[in-house]
Simulated assay, not measured.
Amino acid sequence: MFFFVLPGFIIYSVFFAGPTVAALFLSFTDWNGIAPTFNYVGFSNYTNMLTDDPIFVQSLGNNLKFTLGVLIFQTVLSLFFAMLLVKNTKANIFYRAVYFFPTIVASVSVAFVWTFMYDPNIGVINNILSAVGLESLAKSWLGDRNIAIYSLAFVQFWAHTGQMLIIFVAGLHAIPKELYEAAEIEGASKWQTFKSITWPLLAPSATIVVAYTTIQSFKAFDLVIAMTGGGPSYATEILSTFLYHEAFINFRFGYASAAAVIFMIIIAIVTVLQFRLLKSNDVKF
């Protein structure tokens, strides 16, 4: 039995447990990633980050805005489209494939396409707005620090809504049709049917969608780096790009490790809270 679990244990230890312990250890040092020696600094990395680092605080705030925007719109839209395309007709299967397609495209490719579309001079979006007489709505979508993070959030949920749609479709197919027939006989409205049958029985699927979307949004590194690099003026800097800049640009691996530990704790807390909120799976009339 031991030899059956050994490969999985080795992979888990090398690629997860080991790096996690190493990051925790390095978070108490001032290692720069190059020097063979380092000094122990205790909790100073953590205290400086939480009390005297406005960029970290801004990154955390940006990440929360980004995650919340993606979570709300991606979950609502994917559920809406899933309910529209739940029947296995040829047209619905085709549309599911169309919506799913951006998911299999590399994030960097998606970033390049949307960077062009957001371009304030030759971008498709501003050109369309100008063509229909809405020039006043044309903006520098990635250059305006007040809206840049929301522009990135739109690209994120555009690219991954189709992925969540498939999960919801699978959840909808697992709901017994007899429940809907019973609700129809009882004279339940569509809203009552959704509230009492569809949503409660979709709880497992919704839990997966919400948890995965949250983790995915917190880790949206490649999209942000490719489109804005964290700018302008750190307006789109999120925790994952903050880690990158601190470790590989500023060579503060100890400091970046402390940020990684905080990052991991935040994701763990948010995920646990989401599972607790969505674990109810009772059908109530």
Rank of each mutant, 00 (worst) to 15 (best):
N63H: 02
F3H: 05
V132T: 02
R276E: 08
Y255V: 04
F15K: 03
S205N: 03
I93T: 14
L129F: 12
Y95S: 09
A138Q: 12
N45F: 13
T271Y: 03
L179R: 13
I267K: 00
I149D: 00
A17L: 14
N281G: 02
P36W: 02
D222W: 04
E135T: 10
G33R: 10
S189N: 01
K90I: 14
I167P: 15
Y40F: 14
M1C: 05
A82Q: 09
E135H: 12
A226E: 06
F194S: 00
S217L: 02
A183T: 08
A206H: 07
L172P: 02
I122L: 15
S136Y: 10
F251V: 08
A183W: 14
T236Q: 10
H245D: 10
I267N: 01
I185K: 03
T89L: 12
F66V: 06
Q163H: 15
V5K: 06
G61L: 10
A17R: 01
V41L: 07
V14E: 01
N48P: 05
L179H: 15
I10C: 13
A153N: 03
T29G: 08
I208L: 10
L278T: 01
F66E: 00
G42H: 07
L64K: 00
E184K: 06
L142D: 05
S151G: 08
